[in-house]
């Protein structure tokens, strides 16, 4: 997987990216350092900024999870890092290059998978390679490789609607990974899956990440998910969107999701953001909102305000 990085970039013909990754490799530096400095964003017709003075550095190979209540600007943050949205102020740099439009060094996995229903599984996965001008043989070879990684070789010719929810997300991850991006972004990718499937995909994502060591920026409203996967958890503060807290998760990978350590940490993180959730809910619901007694909120907070 990793050794083919150079060749794939060369295939794409994106000269500067190729040069950058080759340069990084020569200096012994890994790809995928994302640096956001003083990033702010305000949408038209809104009083409060969606994001205000965001400073965030993601190291190569790091798994960073951004959590926060609905409407706190998590997705906005991700879209800015993706280059889909321009920040009003501040700078976003990936491996020393400013991010101002979508580019081949970044890939994204969406909540509602976004697979193309008119293409089959392998055509979906090779779509990005096709856009970058890879030949048929190069595409087939890479698709085969990635299909093995997600353990779906037998489904290459299947249509999107023939797959289960979990399989769709695995294909969406494969479609992103096949581009060999420096930064993989995931926008609540497992939010619409059932609990069992989600746990399975957490495991598989963890394995894939350990195998490829991609830099991952992952957005979710689930604390449980964050604690399972993250090296570092960024807690966002809403209205305006600001980084409220950073929590380093020192537990080693691969993690046992049902271990006491994980549960203990999840409880701790939930406690730390409980106040924030209550504040946001109070603002949204007005005076009628009654915060629940501390310690009673655990289960609810796994989906912090997600249903709002």
């Amino acid at each position: 997987m990793m050794q083919s990085a150079g060749s794939i970039a060369a295939v794409r013909g994106w000269g500067d990216v190729t040069a950058a990754s080759r340069g990084a490799a020569q200096e012994g530096l890994a790809r995928g350092r994302l640096v956001m400095k003083g990033v702010s964003k305000r949408f038209a017709n809104t009083v409060v900024a969606a994001l205000e003075d965001i400073n965030l550095a993601v190291e190569p190979g790091e798994f960073v999870v951004v959590v926060g209540p609905s409407g706190c600007g998590k997705s906005t943050l991700l879209n800015i890092a993706a280059g889909m949205l321009r920040a009003d102020g501040g700078t976003v740099m990936l491996d020393g290059h400013p991010v101002d439009s979508p580019g081949p060094d970044r890939a994204m996995v969406f909540q509602d998978h976004g697979l193309f229903p008119w293409l089959n599984v392998s055509q979906n996965i090779s779509f990005g390679l096709r856009m970058s001008g890879a030949t048929r043989e190069q595409r087939d070879e890479r698709v085969e490789e990635v299909l093995k990684l997600i353990q779906m070789v037998g489904c290459a010719r299947k249509l999107v609607h023939e797959l289960s929810g979990g399989m769709k997300q695995r294909v969406a991850i494969a479609r992103a990974l096949v581009m060999d991006p420096a930064l993989l972004m995931m926008d609540e990718p497992f939010a619409s899956l059932d609990a069992q499937t989600r746990t399975l995909l957490h495991q598989q994502l963890q394995e894939m990440w350990l195998a490829t060591r991609k830099t991952i920026l992952f957005v979710t409203h689930s604390v449980g998910e964050a604690v399972r996967l993250a090296d570092r958890i960024i807690v966002l503060h809403a209205h305006p969107g600001r980084i409220r807290k950073e929590i380093r998760v020192a537990l080693p990978h691969p993690r046992k999701f049902d271990s006491a350590d994980i549960n203990e940490l999840a409880k701790q993180v939930r406690g730390e953001i409980e106040e924030e959730v209550n504040r946001v809910n109070r603002e949204m619901a007005g005076d009628e909102w009654q915060p629940k007694a501390s310690g009673d909120v655990g289960a609810d907070l796994v989906d912090m305000g997600g249903g709002i």
Binding site: A82, M84, P102, P104, R106, A107, M108, F110, D112, H113, G114, L115, F116, F127, G128, M131, S132, R175, M179
Partner: peptide, 18 residues
């Protein structure tokens, strides 16, 4: 057409007329 198709296309390098 779900907006996510356009986003996914853009992220995968389908820009402009493509």
């Amino acid at each position: 057409i779900p907006p996510v198709f356009q986003k996914a296309g853009l992220m995968l390098g389908a820009d402009g007329w493509r």
